[in-house]
Design a binder for these strands. Structure first.
Lengths: 178, 178
DNA sequence: ATGATATTTGAACGATCGTTACACTCTGGA
DNA sequence: TCCAGAGTGTAACGATCGTTCAAATATCAT
């Protein structure tokens, strides 16, 4: 159910995700929706954000933090991200929220997601031998590049552009020069 | 007037930009709005997109194409972009549209904007000595990085992060290795 | 089988959506 | 001075918004 909800918010944004559209997509009537999410639409969006955050914690952030082979883990991150965002065919819900005034409503969730992503990646890079400042710079650049790649791939309707970008970003993240 | 309209669409997205909010921001009544934009909201958004596109053509794309000193022009592009987007305090309307289903409505305008930006920047880079493939790769990376920097700066509510990103992107765009 | 609880249905609420229509004021040329 | 057209203000339209609610149904331990 949450994945279906997420799809509606991803496609239409917070304001565009109407209860009607949510009903159409999920099949749940209004009563059921408000039974599971007494807080209404804001509650639904918060649940979706939490689910997305949980997925990234489990499949992206924690592996980066716990990795024995940091470079391997970083490579796997790019693979997982490419699959998750379907080469730009799927939007990052958190990034999309960040660009509208939904950010004001979910500021903590949005900020925390990216802060923890950058931190986890920077930790892995330090583990791979990068200096503190270099690790943070590379991590910021990589996360920001992924978000930008989604924007450009969607704008140009060109998934190959997304994959090219992932290749370049991965390359310069793993092979850095101080 | 168009700049005020643009602000509403930037803050709230296409769906969230209601006629009431547009009235509040611009001061124009419904009658006036539909007098200037007979096509209604879609007409307004199209006009705003055209104005944004025109601004970038004049201040970003054309200088890149016409530059005698390509490296200087590229440096000026980053300065202009940092000012225009107010270090991430202001959203890229085209990028924001790309992430919602407004893209389906304005696909040509959205796609054209980024395609011409990348082309103009790649032309300047070729003019500065880069190979064809290197120029396109660097141009894609730079434009995508700018979009990503907006997302991250807004998410973290951290304009310094935007400016750090601009520094790094500019550096690796101007000093490349084949 | 019974009763308590969980879930669902669908009508309805007031508010707001985008849009239209019409009367009104303003403006500049004849 | 007058008129045509540009621009404005406002009421109202049907549609849809997010939300509420009471009644109906499903589920399940006892």
């Amino acid at each position: 159910m949450i994945p279906l909800l997420a799809e509606v918010f991803r496609e239409h944004g917070y304001e565009g995700a109407t209860i009607s559209r949510i009903h159409d997509k999920t099949g749940f009537g209004r009563g059921s929706l408000y039974h599971f999410f007494p807080g209404g639409k804001e509650d639904m969006a918060a649940a979706v954000l939490a689910e997305v955050d949980g997925w990234f914690e489990q499949h992206i952030f924690e592996p980066l933090r716990q990795a024995d082979d940091a470079e391997l883990a970083i490579g796997q991150m790019f693979d997982a991200v490419t699959t998750y965002f379907r080469s730009g065919g799927r939007v990052c819900l958190v990034g999309a929220f960040a660009l509208t005034d939904a950010r004001n409503r979910f500021g903590a969730a949005v900020g925390g997601y990216f802060a923890r992503w950058i931190e986890a990646l920077a930790l892995a890079l330090r583990h791979a031998g990068a200096s503190d400042s270099m690790a943070v710079a590379l991590a910021e650049d990589a996360v920001l590049g992924i978000q930008g790649a989604i924007v450009i791939a969607r704008s140009l309707d060109d998934r190959a552009a997304f994959e090219r970008a992932m290749q370049r970003i991965q390359a310069r993240t793993l092979v850095w020069k101080e």
